[in-house]
């Protein structure tokens, strides 16, 4: 058995269009390194300077890895088991993410604070 990884549409250029791929690894970090072997470039889209990209959410069996990391460790240290499902999603608010456009007019209007 291996770990099933669900790939968001925007990253399927790295997986030959596949919606889901399989990988192996003791930890999330290991898994991403393993996946990068078969799908070069994928890891770099998800990990920046050794940590999970701010606008990437990764879930193990539907739970956010940022809350699964034992204290003192990072999300990339989260342990995985065979048969786990890892879901990768872009960060969204109410169903969208387009910061270039959202931030275009500057920050939030401070009214009401």
């Amino acid at each position: 058995m291996a770990i099933n990884v669900r790939i968001p549409t925007i990253l399927r250029s790295y997986t030959g269009g596949a919606k889901a791929v399989e990988g192996t690894g003791e930890t999330l970090g290991d898994l991403l390194t393993n996946l990068d072997g078969s799908h070069p470039g994928l890891r770099d889209r998800l990990v920046t300077a050794g940590s999970l990209h701010r606008f990437v959410n990764v879930y193990v069996n539907d739970e956010d890895v940022r809350f699964l990391a034992p204290s003192g460790l990072t999300p990339l240290d989260v342990k995985l088991d065979d048969g786990d499902t890892v879901t990768i999603l872009p960060a969204v608010a109410g169903g969208a993410a387009d910061r270039a456009a959202a931030g275009g007019a500057g920050g939030p209007v401070p009214a009401g604070r």
């Binding site: 968001p8 549409t9 925007i10 990253l11 919606k19 889209r45 998800l46 990209h53 701010r54 606008f55 990437v56 959410n57 879930y59 539907d62 739970e63 956010d64 940022r66 809350f67 879901t87 999603l89 872009p90 960060a91 969204v92 608010a93 169903g95 969208a96 993410a97 387009d98 910061r99 270039a100 456009a101 959202a102 920050g107 939030p108």
Partner: peptide, 28 residues
């Protein structure tokens, strides 16, 4: 998937109010 289809990861968005330290777990 249609909802996420066009989202570029580098253009993600997290609401300004969000403070992860308030939560203990988060499910998708």
């Amino acid at each position: 998937e249609l909802v996420y289809g066009l989202r570029n990861i580098d253009e993600g968005y997290v609401p300004e109010l969000y403070d992860a330290t308030v939560l203990t777990r988060r499910f998708s």
